[in-house]
Structure formats: structure tokens, C-alpha cells
């Protein structure tokens, strides 16, 4: 699994670049690098369903980001300004929180099964019954549309809400200004 760790490394580098660079267009492209690394890692951990969705969603994300950045400005003029006192305070608070959070995460990751040895208490039933009870050969499709279909209904509602929100924010009729 050496290639997995290589892509994790690339992903972290690209993430740091995306947050720190001055040019917003370059930041968006770096976000794309993170997303495509994640897509390749989905293939490496045997999740082709996720990889297909991630690649296409990543392309659409970049298109929307680039459209917004092109329309407005592509220079992040806050980088290089003198630090305000609130900024330093938020830095300090964040590093404190990050330290505590990492300590807690390291403790709780010990409780999880090690990487590559999933326990699969629920999933073994799904795999055993998937083809005979639902009839779908793709177990992931069985889970999202039959065993846990209510979950999918909730997610569809969230998507519907976000579409309505975007439409309401970008309309012209009824705006005073």
C-alpha cells in the first residue's frame, strides 16, 4: 500500500497550498488536486462507486469555483496584511484546540480496528442477504436504496434544500437593491 501513503502526502501538501496561496485561482486548482488524490485513493481502497462520483463531482466543483472567482477577483488581498490582534488570538486558540483534538483523536483511534482489518459486524449481514433479499448485485446500491433507503431520502431532501437556497439567493425578482 505504498502508493496510498504517497497520495496521502500529495493530498496534504496540496491542502496546505490551497489554504496559504495568494492567488485564489491557484487555490482552487490546489483544491482540485486534493479532490483527485482522494478519488485515486478511493480506487486504491476498493471503492469504485465512490471514485466515479468523486471525480465527476470534483470537476463540477472546480467549474463552479472558477466561475465565481473569474466573476469577482482572483487576488486574496488579505494575505500579507499586518496581523490584527484578533487574528493572532484566533491562531493561538486554534493551535490550542488542534493540540487537544489530536490528543483525543490518537486516543480514540486506538479503539478502532487497525487499518486494513475492518470488523464488519453490520456489513456481513448485508453482504449475506443483499443478493437474495433485494436482488441487486451491487451491495452498495442495495444498502443505499433498500436497507437504508430512509437515509437516502434524507440526503435527497438536503440536496433539494440547497438547490432552493441557491435559487433564492441568486434570483432578481423581488429584490429592492
Amino acid at each position: 500500500m505504498i502508493e496510498l501513503y504517497l497520495f496521502l502526502f500529495i493530498m496534504l501538501i496540496a491542502a496546505v497550498i490551497a489554504t496559504e496561496i495568494k492567488d485564489l485561482l491557484a487555490a482552487v486548482i490546489s483544491l482540485g488536486a486534493v479532490g483527485f488524490s482522494v478519488a485515486i485513493m478511493f480506487i486504491l481502497v476498493q471503492a469504485p462507486d465512490l471514485a466515479i462520483v468523486q471525480i465527476v463531482v470534483e470537476i463540477l466543483t472546480i467549474v463552479i469555483f472558477v466561475a465565481v472567482v473569474f466573476r469577482t477577483t482572483h487576488i486574496d488581498e488579505t494575505i500579507g496584511k499586518r496581523f490584527a490582534s484578533t487574528h493572532i488570538l484566533s491562531m493561538v486558540l486554534f493551535s490550542l484546540f488542534a493540540f487537544l483534538f489530536l490528543a483525543a483523536v490518537v486516543q480514540s483511534l486506538r479503539e478502532l480496528p487497525r487499518f486494513g482489518y475492518a470488523t464488519m459486524r453490520v456489513a456481513s449481514e448485508y453482504i449475506r442477504l443483499g443478493l437474495s433479499e433485494c436482488g441487486g448485485a451491487n451491495i452498495v446500491a442495495d444498502v443505499i436504496l433498500d436497507f437504508r433507503a430512509l437515509d437516502t431520502l434524507g440526503e435527497a431532501t438536503v440536496l433539494f434544500t440547497s438547490v432552493i437556497g441557491v435559487l433564492a439567493l441568486m434570483r432578481k425578482i423581488g429584490r429592492k437593491r
Binding site: 456489513a123 452498495v140 437516502t152 438536503v158 440547497s162 437556497g165
Partner: peptide, 29 residues
């Protein structure tokens, strides 16, 4: 097989992530 349950959970979350990102960008615009 690998565990299908996390894959099923994440599959919907990826598409929702695009929707929420677009909503935040609309507010920013």
C-alpha cells in the same frame, strides 16, 4: 468484500458536499 456500509454513507455525502459548497459560494457572491 470490503465494508459496504461506509461507502454507502459517503456516496450520498459527496453529492451533498457539492450542494452545500455551491450554497456557500452563492452567499459569498
Amino acid at each position: 468484500f470490503v465494508d459496504p456500509v461506509p461507502q454507502a454513507l459517503v456516496l450520498t455525502a459527496i453529492v451533498i458536499a457539492l450542494g452545500t459548497t455551491a450554497l456557500m459560494l452563492a452567499v459569498a457572491l
